[in-house]
């Protein structure tokens, strides 16, 4: 009914955090400071924002397709009656939260794997230099 709103809220927060992290990582000349052995946090957060906004866009499209989102107030057809509204909130608390948690979990796993790949690469480069 409106499960994508949970991920949309997370996407807004993560986008704000990502912009803040990018600012902190930036040097005075505007370039992002990148350590060779580590992926910057802002880049990892950017991956999460892409995942979240992509999913939200598609799910919002699906809800428009099924006539659950309207262009006029209150924008959600489920808000027209209290029974539908409570059903919508229940769905947001179960499916919506599930979506946000799984998406964030997948992103966490992705970051861990990416860090390992970068570390492995830098370790092999260090070994080659010492030989």
């Amino acid at each position: 009914m409106a499960c994508f709103l949970v991920s949309a809220a997370e996407a807004v927060v993560v986008t704000a955090v990502e912009k803040n992290a990018e600012k902190k990582e930036c040097k005075h000349d505007g370039h992002v400071e990148v350590k060779e052995t580590k992926i910057p946090l802002s880049r990892k957060l950017k991956w999460l924002t892409y995942l979240l906004w992509g999913g939200v866009a598609m799910l919002a499209f699906e809800h428009i397709w099924h006539g659950e989102v309207t262009p006029f107030f209150p924008f959600l057809t489920a808000m027209n009656s209290p029974e539908d509204a409570s059903e919508m909130f229940r769905e947001m608390a179960t499916v919506g939260v599930g979506m946000a948690v799984l998406l964030t979990g997948v992103w966490g796993g992705m970051c861990a794997v990416a860090d390992r790949i970068v570390k492995r690469e830098s370790d092999s480069e260090t070994k080659e230099e010492t030989v």
Partner: peptide
């Protein structure tokens, strides 16, 4: 193309949860 990957994977994960429920 990375952006398109993220976009489609994000939607796939969200629809997977929907399908599981």
């Amino acid at each position: 193309l990375g952006i398109l990957c993220f976009l489609y994977w994000g939607a796939s994960i969200m629809w997977l949860v929907d399908a599981l429920f």
